[in-house]
Design a protein around this nucleic acid. Structure first.
Lengths: 165, 165
DNA sequence: CGACGATAGTTCACATGTAAACTATCGTCC
DNA sequence: GGACGATAGTTTACATGTGAACTATCGTCG
């Protein structure tokens, strides 16, 4: 057992002030390293992590979606979607389609080319998931997901408070 | 118990293909939401998350550090440090100092003003840590950190392979 | 009908990250 | 002591995120 692996990784001289701080930093650092890996994989196929995310969401939904709905499922704010879709459209991976009933909304649709690219990525992505966390037991993975979901409950409740202000 | 909270959050129609995928997405999503919160807090004080990180690293080290050493403790690549330090210097929070022995290295030093800003942030930051994960028990926090550290072991070993190529 | 608030996207300004190319120095080896 | 590879930073080009302001529509209410 390495009781202070994170402290060692960060070359921190002082121990963590609290378990809360240590856990939070562990989340951030793990995410950064994972994002790094996925980013590299996607880049080999001409995509970024965000772009891949958009394509995945569109495939999961199975039909064209408005910008706002896509942004809502990603954590990001709306304005970023414009440029994101611009580049995906330029690559021919999605198509913009203005809704006829409500001319304010613009549907984003996955193209055949986009679907094919996604499919080519399925196996490598699954493989990377296994590489990154496959050495944890099924029980550990379940526990990890449970703890992280519990973490997010605080954000949700805090957001409720904020939106009630 | 909510067995598929993440699936519900993402409005995913299909269940996750694997526990590995679910755990990875849980890490990413939790991180995004936490970063969001910390970013807001730092912004109220005129800082970004990255800038705060640099200041924290400098205070932890207790003395001036070369750019590379700072970048190494963050996950990011080197080039980003230049602009980051530029802006911190413009705000008077750090100072650049060229080393006399080795004129290639430039020491970054925390200024008095930077130290004061950090100190003002200490309490709010600690408070936010508690808000975000304080509802987990001490045992859960320890287990979460343990699992995340175990996750990162795969990245480390994979990096060894890569650097040996 | 016509003003007005709400909603969907876009544009803008600014701070990051990433990779690749470039500059200034250092060390070392012949 | 001069070439050469390695090291520390910077610059450049491009894709993100974030907040604020703006445009086009919709709906509704008077």
């Amino acid at each position: 057992m390495t009781p202070n692996q994170l402290q060692h990784e960060l070359k921190k001289k002082h121990p963590f002030e609290s378990l809360e701080q240590e856990a939070t930093l562990n989340i951030v650092r793990t995410n950064d390293q994972f994002q790094n890996r996925f980013g590299r994989l996607f880049r080999e196929h001409g995509l970024t992590s965000s772009q891949y995310n958009v394509l995945r969401i569109l495939r999961g939904e199975g039909r064209p979606m408005p910008c706002l709905d896509i942004a809502e499922r990603m954590v990001q704010v709306v304005p970023a979607m414009t440029g994101l879709v611009d580049r995906l459209e330029k690559q021919g991976l999605v198509r913009r389609d203005r809704c006829t009933e409500d001319r304010r909304v613009i549907f984003i649709e996955l193209t055949e080319k986009g679907a094919e690219l996604l499919q080519r990525l399925d196996e490598p992505v699954m493989e990377l998931h296994r590489t990154l966390v496959g050495h944890l037991s099924q029980a550990e993975l379940k526990e990890l997901s449970r703890l992280l979901e519990k973490c997010r409950q605080s954000v949700r409740s805090a957001d409720c408070v904020r939106s009630a202000e």
